[in-house]
């Protein structure tokens, strides 16, 4: 029971991270119908920028933790968003209306480029970060001494995710920006005719997705204490799986899918085998796509004739 509880808490934390990344996949898919293959690498860049932020603030002698976190969070979101914007501008925008496979191939190229860009500039070795927030609450103790704990960091991650989700839902549902975005999802030509700047709306979508991925990168770095240039690939695919599982194009779906994938991974590692946890996630991806391609909360797609 204690062990199970611990795995659930770990799963929730991991799932929150996947969910944050999955939102970026799902929004981009919703609006331009492509898999932004480089999104996982944007997440990785967000983690790297956060790492540098911590190191830089350490050198500058900023010691008060909440201030450090706030600065790193905002800086990482903004600078990572610049990457998201640039990727869209250079690799995807010129390809609108092009050959069907072109954007996807371009995205794969962008992903390779970003990975190797970071590797060249920062080295191939994994970068460690000492724990920023330590300690936690003890929840349950087993007679043999095993305790289920929830760390302050895990609480922070879950709270941060909840806050961001609420803010984000508000943004999409209530603001004019959100309306523009939804109108572009429905019909870009029509949206352009009624005065929506489609290019700008798509850019903003990428910027928002990248900013959320940066948050995911920050908390991933704090939770696991290490990042390397290749990390974005696997995490990105898992987050994509989460987006598909939840129903691609659906924001609550992305979050739900993230939580489920996080749970599956944590429980699988806890009870079966750590080595095959990636196979479990890929297995879920394959099964969902084959048996329910519209995901849990997505709308079924009808072949247009």
């Amino acid at each position: 029971m204690e062990y199970f509880l611990q795995q659930v808490i770990n799963g929730l934390t991991l799932g929150a991270i996947y969910g944050l990344i999955a939102i970026g996949y799902t929004m981009v898919y919703g609006i331009i119908g492509m898999i932004n293959f480089a999104h996982g690498d944007i997440f990785m860049i967000g983690a790297f920028i956060s790492l540098m932020g911590f190191l830089l603030l350490g050198l500058l002698g900023v010691g008060w933790l909440p201030l450090t976190l706030l600065i790193v969070l905002i800086a990482s979101m903004m600078l990572t968003a610049a990457y998201g914007w640039t990727v869209e501008r250079l690799a995807y925008r010129p390809l609108r209306g092009s050959f069907r496979l072109a954007p996807l191939i371009s995205a794969i190229g962008m992903s390779l480029f970003l990975q190797n860009y970071v590797q060249l500039l920062q080295g191939a070795r994994a970068k460690p970060l000492p724990p920023v927030i330590e300690g936690g609450f003890e929840l349950m103790r087993r007679p043999d001494g095993f305790t289920a704990t929830i760390s302050y960091l895990q609480i922070l991650i879950i709270l941060l995710t909840v806050v961001l989700m609420i803010a984000f839902t508000f943004l999409i549902q209530r603001t004019s920006l959100g309306r523009q975005q939804r109108s572009c999802e429905q019909d870009k030509t029509m949206a352009a005719l009624i005065g929506v700047n489609v290019d700008r709306t798509i850019s903003i979508t990428f910027v928002m997705g990248a900013a959320l991925a940066a948050v995911a990168g920050l908390v991933y770095l704090m939770r696991y204490g290490v990042i390397d240039f290749f990390e974005g690939f696997l995490v990105g695919i898992k987050a994509f799986t989460a987006a598909v599982l939840g129903g691609i194009g659906s924001l609550p779906g992305a979050m739900l899918g993230g939580l489920l994938i996080g749970m599956i991974e944590a429980l699988w590692s806890g009870y079966f085998s750590v080595q095959y946890k990636d196979v479990a996630v890929f297995g879920v991806l394959v099964l969902v796509l084959i048996f329910r391609p519209s995901g849990l909360l997505g709308k079924p797609e009808i072949e247009k004739v």
Partner: peptide
């Protein structure tokens, strides 16, 4: 099973299969 999937889903599933085979070989 995968060939009835649409283009980009097909791509990602083939990628998944590739990784599954590698992980199995590894473990």
């Amino acid at each position: 099973p995968v060939l009835r999937l649409r283009g980009d889903y097909f791509a990602i599933v083939t990628l998944g299969f590739g990784e599954i085979i590698r992980v199995v070989l590894q473990n």
